[in-house]
Write a protein that binds this DNA or RNA. Structure first.
Lengths: 133, 133
DNA sequence: TCTAATGATACCATTATTGTATCATTTGTA
DNA sequence: TACAAATGATACAATAATGGTATCATTAGA
């Protein structure tokens, strides 16, 4: 199981990369070269981050991206919500039909509570925390 | 995201069903009729549970299944491990290549620690706990 | 001996995720 | 001013995991 999707994973890496180059303009080519992430896919990641206000972009020659906010303000939970939707450990709508979980309610309650723990932990992690080494 | 796969989910339901019919022989047909689970698929679930020692089976006419142990001994984490492998929030081998996570180690550490919390919680839940109502 | 059950297993369908390709637009610079 | 290098937008394809079906062999009760 993967808590983070590729988009989220690549987002974290790319953002970390930029956090270490504050003031510079970073292109998808730079990231591709240095981090070896598949470029077309990761470009989509970056575009989403731009739309969501995490990145400022400059088009054209010598264009690229820069962080739009300090690393302290970028939280793991925020990135996950963008790329993976609300964190849930039991997706309960199954093609518009009601979940198969309602019948096993005590189990559902357990899982929901674990979910809350997880979200709490994830909320505590910022990009800045991941930069410390 | 789903913490539980269908197999695990169906296993819990079927086991709960049998826990409420101790002494009776329960067939896959009974479960299908009463719980509306897709029979061929759920039959596989039951067969695995039998192989793993959770169920005793009787073949032939009037055959079926019975719990092989008391509900207190059946733990959610055990079922998950059978049907989903070891609980991990960051599957790190990607087609035999080393994970893409190692490069973002602090993140990996965070996730591993959340994983431990989750496993701990899951270990605490038994079938008997889910029967209480 | 027929029927209803499990055991084993092969196969198919669906979905989500991951990844590629392409074209339009923008902008610095030779 | 034209070219090159970048992002924006978007359509399409590949892959893998999961979920599900079908079938045949075997067993056992009535």
């Amino acid at each position: 199981m993967n808590l983070l999707s590729r988009h989220t994973d690549y987002a974290v890496r790319a953002l970390l990369y930029m956090a270490n180059r504050v003031g510079e303009r970073v292109s998808s080519m730079d990231i591709h070269r240095d981090l070896k992430l598949p470029r077309p896919f990761m470009r989509k990641t970056l575009q989403v981050l731009q739309k969501e206000g995490y990145l400022v972009s400059v088009k054209g020659h010598k264009g690229g991206f820069m962080l739009a906010m300090p690393p302290q303000k970028i939280r793991l939970i925020g990135l996950m919500r963008i790329f993976q939707g609300d964190i849930s450990l039991s997706d309960c709508l199954f093609r518009k039909k009601l979940c198969r979980c309602v019948a096993v309610c005590p189990l559902r309650r357990e899982i929901k509570s674990m979910e809350a723990v997880l979200v709490d932990r994830l909320s505590g992690v910022s990009l800045a925390d991941l930069m410390v080494r």
